[in-house]
Nucleic acid binder design. Sequence first.
DNA 1: TCATATTTGACATTATACTTGTCGTTTTGA
DNA 2: TCAAAACGACAAGTATAATGTCAAATATGA
Lengths: 148, 148
Amino acid sequence: MKNADLYRLVWMSRPLMQATEACVEAGLRETELTVRMRAVLEILREHGDLTVPDLAQRLEIKRQYVQVMVNETLTSGFTEQRANPRHKRSPLVALTARGRDVIEEIISREMALLDRISAGLDPEEIATALKVVLAVTDKMKQAAGDGK
Amino acid sequence: MKNADLYRLVWMSRPLMQATEACVEAGLRETELTVRMRAVLEILREHGDLTVPDLAQRLEIKRQYVQVMVNETLTSGFTEQRANPRHKRSPLVALTARGRDVIEEIISREMALLDRISAGLDPEEIATALKVVLAVTDKMKQAAGDGK
DNA sequence: TCATATTTGACATTATACTTGTCGTTTTGA
DNA sequence: TCAAAACGACAAGTATAATGTCAAATATGA
C-alpha cells in the first residue's frame, strides 16, 4: 500500500487519544477534579480569565456544554466569577487560589509523565511528528469541509 | 516548557481524530454505510472472516456493541454468516460480494484523499511521525495501566 | 465422562460527552 | 433606536459506547 504509514498514523489518533485520556483520568484520581473541569482550569491557567463563550471557542465545544463544565468548577470552588467590564451579563471566569494550586499540581505531574515518556525519544523526531500531525490535521479539516 | 512539542503532539490526537472521522463520514455520504459499519467491513476485508468476539478484540470495543455493529451490516446485506467449524453457536461473519465492493470503493477513495494529503509531505517524516506516535501511545497505555 | 467454568448471542440498562433547541434578557452595532 | 446577536439557563435529543444479565453452547480439567 502506497500511503501505509500515513494511513496507520491517522488511525493511531484514536488509540493515542484514548491512552492520553486514560492517563489524564488516572492523574485525577484522589483529586476532586473531573476531566472536563480540568480542561476548563487548564485553559484559564494558560490564557487568564475568560468568558464562557470564549472558553467554548478555545475548546471547540458548544457554549451550552461549556457552561455546564464551568458551572461545575464554580460550584466546586476552583473558579469564581469576576465583573466583566466588556459585558455586564457575561462575567469573566477566573481561577481561585485553590483552583490554581490544583491545576498547577496536576499539570506538573503530567509534565513529569511526559518527561518519562520523552526519555527514549529524539526531540528532533518529536518535533517532526508534531509538524506532520499538524499538517495532516489541517488538510483533513479542509477536506472534510469541502465534502460538506 | 520542556516537553512542549510532545505536549502539543499528544493533545493533537483529538483534533486529528475528529478531522479524520469527519473525512470518513463525508466519504460515506451517498452510501448506505455508517461509520461503524465501515469499521466492521474494513477489518473483515483485511483479516478475512471473523467471529464477533474476534472483531471486538481487534476493534478494542466490547463484544456487545460490536454485535450491534455487525448485526447492522448483516441486515444491510454487506455481510453474511457462515458456518464456523470451530464453534457452532458463533458463526463467522463474512463480506458479501456487495459488501466487498462497497468497502473497496470507499477505501480506494480514502486512499486517494491520503494521496492528496501526503503530497506536500516527506515520506521519511511521515515514517518518523508514525514511529513516535506508536512509541508514545505505547508508553501512555503503560502509564495509564500502572495508575489503576 | 462429568461437572464446572467460559464463551457467545441477545437483550436491557446505564453512562458519557456532547449537540440542538428554546426562552428571556442583555448587549451590540448600523 | 432598534433589529440582530450574544448570553445564561434549562430541556431534550443523539452517538458511542460500557455494563449487566440470561440461556444455550462450548471448552476445560479432574
